[in-house]
């Protein structure tokens, strides 16, 4: 597979380390919402189809990326820097 890195263009998937569901970005606050942690840690989606997932450009620029990928066809529909997404989400709060 090739991952279209937002800054570096197409890079081979071998350079990346896979983590999984991008919902991991939505970490609850440990002091104010401890009850939300069980779902955060254990309940994640694993869809057959379009999935937003985290990839780390380990042999590259060490960016965490959010790759929107169809897990059935491996089509990649979009890639964002996780940092931008996380900052956007924090700004929206």
């Amino acid at each position: 597979m090739l991952i279209p890195h937002p800054l570096l263009g197409l890079r081979d998937a071998q350079e990346f380390t896979y983590l999984g569901d991008a919902a991991l970005l939505n970490r609850p606050d440990g002091l104010t919402a401890p009850e939300a942690f069980n779902d955060y840690v254990y309940l994640r989606d694993n869809p057959a189809g379009v999935h937003r997932e985290l990839w780390f450009h380990e042999q590259g620029d060490r960016s965490w990326l959010i790759v929107t990928r169809n897990t059935l066809t491996h089509d990649i529909l979009g890639v964002e820097l996780a940092r931008d997404v996380a900052l956007g989400a924090k700004g929206a709060k």
């Binding site: 965490w64 820097l81 996780a82 940092r83 900052l87 924090k90």
Partner: peptide
């Protein structure tokens, strides 16, 4: 990798 995850994804 874990520290970069925390830096970029959790507390940017």
């Amino acid at each position: 990798r874990h520290m970069e995850f925390a830096r970029q994804c959790l507390w940017p």
